[in-house]
């Protein structure tokens, strides 16, 4: 279906708009008629018990899964109809981070950059070092610890120009210093007008002034 509405691109509009989205999985309704908006420079934390549908929601918002009903708009356009444009403005890091354990950290980051159309690889070594992977850039990722493997995926946060970040449990397996670095990077992104949607069980209220929270209940 073609969207005939005029395309409005005014400043300060909603980056992401979720319109009465319903998700049914294995005959269980995870959430029904869920609507919310996320503006530029805003961060939203999705909370809820295990099995409430946090990951399912993020997958729908990233366009990997289709909702049973409802639609998701990015800059007023349906993400399904304009997926490639949407994907250019999206950074998604899920449970499965997309890091190949046979390749080295450096190769992983470079491959990700190329697949996403970025071709500046000059900062990769510096950033890997900054994230505490000094000397580990050229060993296969499978030899690294869980936290280090996650850092290899999180380097992408410093290497993209996407407006919207969708992150599923980004703090998993990170130490305190890593968590602090990530929060610092989130703030930079928000100041530049980007938006973040994430799930985490950490309390983020002290770190972000404009934190919105969305609570999903476990439904039977």
């Amino acid at each position: 279906m073609v969207d005939y509405r005029p395309i409005l691109r005014t400043e300060n509009t909603n980056l992401l708009e979720v319109k009465s989205v319903t998700c049914v999985k294995q005959e269980r309704c995870l959430f029904e008629a869920l609507s919310f908006t996320l503006g530029s420079g805003k961060i939203m934390q999705i909370e809820g018990p295990n099995g409430a549908g946090k990951t399912s929601l993020l997958r729908i918002l990233s366009g990997f899964a289709q909702p049973e009903e409802g639609e998701v708009l990015f800059e007023q356009r349906s993400i399904n109809d304009y997926y490639d444009e949407f994907a250019a403005e999206l950074l998604f890091i899920g449970h499965k981070t997309g890091v190949n354990t046979q390749l080295t950290a450096f190769e992983n980051v470079c491959h990700w950059l190329r697949v996403h159309g970025y071709n500046d690889e000059s900062q990769v070594y510096d950033l890997l070092g900054k994230l505490g992977l000094v000397g580990l850039e050229d060993v296969p990722v499978r030899t690294l610890s869980a936290g280090q493997q996650r850092r290899v995926a999180l380097v992408r946060l410093w290497l993209n120009s996407a407006k919207l970040w969708i992150l599923d449990e980004p703090f998993t397996a990170l130490d305190k210093k890593g968590v602090a670095m990530l929060q610092c990077r989130f703030n930079e992104h928000l100041e530049q007008g980007g938006s973040i949607l994430l799930t985490t069980h950490q309390d983020l209220t002290q770190h972000f002034e404009q934190l919105q929270t969305l609570v999903l209940e476990y439904r039977h």
């Binding site: 990997f64 994907a87 999206l90 998604f92 899920g94 981070t97 997309g98 890091v99 190949n100």
Partner: peptide, 9 residues
Amino acid sequence: DGSLEQMIA
């Protein structure tokens, strides 16, 4: 490992 999702996105 999630690379497929990265390729889609």
